[in-house]
């Protein structure tokens, strides 16, 4: 076991895969010489050289287009989009090109690209550098969507994403960068589409993702003090979605809460609420409750941003109110 920060786990995970596969390359803005604006790619240029770790101009479409073209001709690629908000600039390549090419070509085309991007709030950056946009990607057929919450998951899920022949959007959370955790020795490889029960409980299921996972865990801790036993599920990947983990938990607890950082409308929790309502209705003792950022652009000021993103307090309060 080695303790790593979430930030360092990114470079650690990429290095593991670049050592394994000498074809694997990466590109993005400021990722080589500077080691990334979030310092998630430090050391990679030194180890793998400028042919495999490449700085690009500020050309998001050119970055993802190049990633796709290389991938479809036999060179797997990790591409970085500095902030996930910038996906809007190159969303054509993500949503119309990478995601559709296998289907449109009757299965001829394979696009093994991982698009890594820094997602989410908590940094007081304002609405254009803070949004949680995992739901943008979740709604596109043909994209896999991953959002780890711990350093070990960063390494294992990065490896799984890189080895997956389908395009994956990999969301690294800005507010988790400095958090630390143990990463197993040796090669770490995880599996996409497997949620994790990170705390067992019997009274309520709290489903969370990325930055909301530590908050859900804190909330569960506090709920336990009040005699409420909450089970916390870290979804880890939105596509494929581990519905078995959710439905299994609901069968046990009979109540479901989602904790989502994305703005309310069409957040991932809406899909989960719908699946639970349709497939586990008779297991439920009460409505599925979504705890989300309101449907607003994210504000910059600390006081407002903290109010917007689901807090531990809000989770505790909402669960209690609804279980009474």
């Amino acid at each position: 076991m080695a303790e790593l920060s979430y930030r360092d786990a990114v470079a650690y995970g990429i290095a593991q895969e670049m050592r394994r596969d000498p074809q694997l390359v990466m590109l993005g803005e400021d990722i080589a010489g500077a080691g990334g604006v979030f310092k998630t790619t430090v050391g990679l240029l030194n180890e793998f050289g400028p042919t495999r770790v490449r700085d690009t101009p500020i050309s998001e479409q050119a970055i993802l287009g190049a990633a796709m073209g290389a991938a479809m001709t036999g060179v797997p690629v990790i591409a970085e989009i500095m902030f996930s908000d910038f996906l809007a600039v190159c969303f054509d390549i993500v949503a119309n090109e990478m995601a559709k090419s296998r289907y449109m070509t009757g299965g001829q085309m394979s696009v093994p690209v991982v698009v890594r991007t820094a997602n989410g709030g908590g940094s007081r950056f304002g609405a254009q550098h803070s949004q949680s946009v995992e739901n943008w990607c979740m709604m596109i057929p043909g994209l896999k969507v991953v959002a780890p919450s711990t350093p070990a998951d960063v390494v294992g899920l990065l490896a799984a994403s890189i080895r997956d022949p389908d395009p994956v959007v990999f969301f690294e959370h800005k507010s988790l960068m400095a958090t630390k955790g143990d990463v197993p020795e040796g090669e770490v490889i995880d599996e996409l589409g497997q949620a994790k029960i990170v705390r067992a409980g019997t009274d309520a299921t709290i489903v969370a993702l990325a930055y909301m996972v530590p908050r859900a865990l804190e909330a569960a801790e506090r709920l336990a003090e009040d005699g409420i036993s909450a089970e916390v599920i870290d979804l880890r990947t939105l596509v494929p979605l581990d519905t078995n983990a959710i439905l299994g938990s609901v069968a046990k607890t009979s109540r479901v809460f989602t904790v989502e950082e994305n703005p309310r409308l069409c957040g991932w929790g809406a899909e989960i609420a719908s699946i639970v309502a349709q497939e586990a209705f008779w297991d439920l003792d009460g409505p599925v409750v979504r705890i989300t950022t309101p449907h607003i652009p994210l504000p910059a000021a600390e006081a407002l941003e903290d109010l917007a993103i689901p807090s531990t307090d809000r989770i505790v309060r909402t669960v209690k109110e609804n279980l009474d």
Binding site: S59, G65, G69, A70, A71, M72, T73, V75, I93, E97
Partner: peptide, 21 residues
Amino acid sequence: YAIIGAHLTIANGAAWSAQIR
């Protein structure tokens, strides 16, 4: 490709791949 412009960037990737390989 039917979204104007996109495939110029994708074509670059195929060229890059030939360079790498």
